[in-house]
């Protein structure tokens, strides 16, 4: 399965594009050299190292025990919880992001670049700081509860619960859902939509039969870009979960922290399998989406 196909936002193929890249091919190859070095050094080699550690014991003999660790009830539970939370976060992100992307697409040029700016702006600040800020906002004596207390309203206690972790995930990863969908929507040819309307489709039909299928590639890359980091996160669950809720990412981090690289790598491999499965499912839908085009 091609990772790059899923990750990049598909744009409708244009023949002009193709012929333009033709004569430039040798030059383009040369330009990719730094990227290939980068990829070997920071993707391929680390992967090989993880495979090596994941499949060996501390005296370098082959074993599957590190992978079998996932069957341990504690780890299984952590994996299940991580899958649940990241699925919920992804769905929430999608429900929030799609309408937002549509609004952005419909709005006028000036104001939409302003809104895009607003979405991207928080990303200028470090992700850890923003998550710690959420801790301060949600705490029992935090900002929200202080305000609620002031008005004598009942307080919310979601810090250190799965709800806080989902909130953290949605908050941090929402832009990764909005931007790919927006990018695809903005490239849909207005004539196609007009044609649909001319042929008698109402608003709903136009959306379901034209806009939604055409935007599927953006939705797919959005889902991948939210689901994968949510599934593997350990920082959000530590900061907003008060170390009480253990996700599979926390288990792996813990193993590396206490120096058990073999167990940590083995569990990482299992997680990698889950990510590959999810991407395989997504790319299947993606193909259907493309064939509709």
């Amino acid at each position: 399965m091609k990772l790059r196909n899923v990750l990049k936002t598909r744009t409708p193929k244009s023949p002009v594009h193709k012929s333009a890249s033709g004569p430039n091919m040798p030059k383009a190859k040369w330009l990719s050299f730094p990227y290939i070095v980068w990829m070997i050094g920071f993707i391929i080699i680390p992967l090989v190292v993880i495979f090596y550690y994941g499949l060996t014991t501390s005296d370098s003999t082959f074993t599957l025990n590190n992978i079998a660790l996932v069957m341990d009830p504690i780890n299984l539970k952590a994996l299940k919880q991580a899958l649940e939370l990241s699925l919920v976060s992804t769905v929430i992100c999608l429900l929030l992001a799609y309408p937002l992307a549509m609004i952005l697409n419909k709005s006028k040029m000036n104001s939409n670049s302003f809104i895009v700016m607003i979405i991207i702006l928080p990303m200028w600040m470090n992700f850890l700081l923003r998550t710690i800020a959420w801790q301060n906002i949600l705490e029992k004596t935090g900002i929200i509860n202080t305000i609620l207390n002031f008005f004598k309203l009942p307080t919310v206690n979601i810090i250190n619960t799965p709800a806080a972790i989902i909130l953290g995930m949605v908050y941090n990863f929402l832009p990764f859902m909005v931007l790919p969908i927006y990018n695809v929507l903005i490239k849909i040819d207005q004539d196609v939509i007009n044609a649909a309307r001319d042929l008698g489709a109402n608003g709903m039909q136009t959306f379901l039969k034209i806009i939604l299928p055409l935007s599927l590639p953006g939705v797919i890359s959005g889902i991948t870009m939210v689901f994968v980091p949510s599934l593997t996160t350990f920082v959000i669950s530590t900061i907003l979960g008060g170390n009480k809720i253990v996700l599979i990412g926390n288990v792996i981090e813990q193993q590396f922290r206490v120096g058990n690289w073999h167990a940590g790598s083995g569990l990482s491999l299992v997680l990698m399998i889950f990510i590959l499965i999810s991407m395989a499912i997504l790319s299947k839908y993606d193909k259907e989406g493309s064939s509709l085009w």
Partner: peptide, 19 residues
């Protein structure tokens, strides 16, 4: 019953009346 498992953070949380 535990609000959170902490080491260094216990200080600020107790000062702030969090627990």
């Amino acid at each position: 019953l535990v609000q959170a498992y902490v080491v260094d953070q216990v200080r600020d949380k107790m000062i702030g009346g969090e627990a």
